[in-house]
């Protein structure tokens, strides 16, 4: 495999001091429908998700926003969808990137791996939904 087999931007993360407030601003003022909200298991981070065609906007914030504080947000990371996350991770590691092992994502059935350096200041991750395509010629 020459490249990482990225097919599209899967989601864009907007990190903030209050995910619910920022998601509601985008909903009310920009007409972006919030499809799902959840608490991230383990960390308690508050998450809200919207989808514009193939791209998910993920609004992320701390478990307990401080009431009264000015709500601040910033574009944070980008997640690229790949067909075969293990092959993509292997490829990037061979190029010298520090990439975490694929682990279950909050999206059911998906695997995610974080690229920890070398991406010009943008935190990137890779995500794979479902099983990768069979390798041509491989025994079945």
């Amino acid at each position: 495999m020459d490249g990482i087999g990225a097919t599209h931007i899967d989601h864009i993360v907007i990190s903030s001091s209050d995910a619910a407030v920022v998601a509601d601003t985008f909903r009310r003022n920009l007409g972006i429908e919030i499809k799902r909200t959840m608490t991230r298991p383990g960390t308690g981070a508050q998450l809200a998700f919207a989808k514009l065609q193939e791209i998910i906007l993920e609004f992320a914030g701390p478990p307990a926003p401080k009431p009264g504080d000015e709500v601040k947000a910033r574009l944070w990371g980008i997640v690229l969808a790949v067909r075969d996350i293990r092959a993509a991770v292997e490829r990037l590691r061979s190029l010298g990137y520090d990439v975490g092992d694929p682990k279950p994502a909050v999206q059911p059935g998906a695997l995610i791996a974080t690229i920890k350096s070398g991406t010009h200041g943008v935190p990137f991750a890779l995500i794979q939904y479902g099983t990768p395509p069979a390798t041509p010629g491989a025994a079945t």
Partner: peptide, 10 residues
Amino acid sequence: MKALRIDHVG
């Protein structure tokens, strides 16, 4: 206002 798509990320 209707947001249609993420055109790009700068």
